[in-house]
Nucleic acid binder design. Structure first.
Lengths: 129, 129
DNA sequence: CTTGACCTTCCCATGATGGGAATCCCCACA
DNA sequence: TGTGGGGATTCCCATCATGGGAAGGTCAAG
């Protein structure tokens, strides 16, 4: 299986497959012509990476998760710890964005939004603090 | 006022002040020795930028907001439109993160988190899809 | 006159992803 | 057998906002 087919089978772009290999998440055999060669084993790894990325794990976390996945003697406690730490990070970020949105929505609610120049949004941005 | 003092007064790092100047958000006079010179006018601009950034506006939005702020004939409708579009983006992103967090929290809830290797989190990441 | 704090520009790094160029390889078809 | 097209390779660059750090110039106080 060449990289294009592996990309199709895993849902990871060929570009990213090469990148993941460059940062050591993956290894790929090479055929005589220098093309990367993949089998179901590597495609499974690529899918694993994609799913972890879909859950927002940064690649360094993905690296650890992959190591745990491939370690039969792993303790699930370690995986759970990683996951919950990431959940914390996600929730913190989401809350931060939600707070920004609420502040701005509040400001916008008091803005006429017509042809007049008066605008509490700009007033707030220009405040002296 | 040199850049260090302007940084202190505005809450924007000297590094970022130079960057904002490089991308044209700001202009700065130079004294004979080549140092950037600021007055209250520019410090107000820097504060404006910082506040907009604190609300998560990308710099291109900040550029437009600055232009509107400095345009006395502006229509507040334009500001409001920009703000609400950004609120949308923030809420979408927040919702996306919240969804990731909920999924992962759900998976983690079913993980023993002990010395055993069985782990629904890894099982999910390794699923064939 | 030295020292230290401040300023300058320039390059590099982050994190994940993509675009695109130049070059090479392979297969199918006329 | 020649050619065309699709796919592969590597390498460089861009994004977005921010910071680190080097090498060197400037200024004020001791």
């Amino acid at each position: 299986m060449n990289i294009g087919e592996a990309a199709g089978a895993s849902g990871v772009s060929a570009k990213m497959i090469r990148h993941y290999e460059a940062i050591g998440l993956l290894t790929a055999a090479r055929s005589a012509n220098g093309y990367r060669v993949y089998n179901d084993r590597e495609v499974a790894v690529l899918r694993f990476i994609r799913h972890a990325r879909d859950l927002g794990f940064p690649l360094e976390d993905v690296r650890r998760l992959l190591a745990l996945w491939q370690d039969r003697g792993r303790a699930s406690a370690e995986v759970k710890r990683l996951a919950l730490a990431h959940v914390e990070a996600l929730e913190t970020k989401a809350e931060s964005l939600r707070t920004m949105a609420a502040s701005l929505r509040h400001l916008a609610a008091h803005c006429h939004g017509d042809a007049r120049p008066d605008c509490p949004i700009l007033d707030d941005l220009a405040r002296k603090e």
